[in-house]
Simulated assay, not measured.
Amino acid sequence: MMPTAQMSSRGGPWRLYVALMGATEWPDFRWERPTPVPTITERRAALATLGFEQVPGSQWSWIEDTVTHGDDASPVLLIATVDVRELTGGAS
């Protein structure tokens, strides 16, 4: 199963992390700003820092959720996902 990178924000800083099955900690990167949304170039650089790259041909997809599950008045949580793979040699 291929790992997935996810990027999320609750209106504050953006966090990008790689969801690794069976791992106790996931590699992550933060942009300490609420706007603008990190560019694809910034995401690519952050993934490389973590030892991963976007799978060729895959695209970021976005979903919207609520901070409080089932509460439509709750603040929105934005989540983006993309398939990734380890860079040759892995994280440094």
Rank of each mutant, 00 (worst) to 15 (best):
I79H: 07
P38M: 12
T41F: 12
A91E: 03
M7E: 11
A46G: 03
S61W: 07
R44T: 09
S8D: 14
S74D: 13
P56K: 01
S9A: 11
H69D: 13
T4F: 06
P38C: 03
P34N: 14
P3C: 02
T66M: 08
A45I: 15
E64T: 04
W31E: 10
P38W: 10
T88P: 03
E42F: 12
G90H: 04
A5V: 01
G70L: 00
W62R: 09
V76M: 00
A46H: 06
P36R: 14
V82P: 01
T49G: 15
S74C: 10
I79N: 02
S8R: 11
A5C: 10
T41V: 14
T41R: 04
V67P: 02
A5K: 14
T41P: 01
T24S: 15
Y17L: 15
R43C: 08
W26P: 00
V18C: 14
T68M: 07
G51P: 12
T35C: 02
T66H: 11
M7L: 14
M21A: 15
T66L: 03
L78P: 04
S61Y: 03
E53G: 12
R43W: 02
A23G: 07
G70H: 01
Q6V: 13
G11R: 07
P36S: 05
W62C: 07
A45W: 06
T81L: 04
E64W: 08
D72I: 02
L20K: 01
V76A: 00
R33I: 00
P56C: 03
M1R: 11
T49M: 07
R85A: 05
G11P: 00
R43S: 06
A80S: 14
E53V: 05
T4S: 09
M21L: 10
G12E: 08
G11Q: 02
Q6T: 08
I63Q: 15
P38G: 11
Q59D: 05
M21P: 13
R10V: 08
E86W: 00
G51A: 03
A48T: 09
A91W: 09
G90E: 02
P38Q: 12
W31Q: 08
P34K: 13
I63P: 02
G57V: 12
V67D: 11
Q54L: 09
Q54I: 03
L16F: 14
D71T: 06
M2K: 14
A48F: 05
V37L: 05
D71G: 03
E42L: 02
R43Y: 02
R30S: 13
P36K: 09
S8E: 01
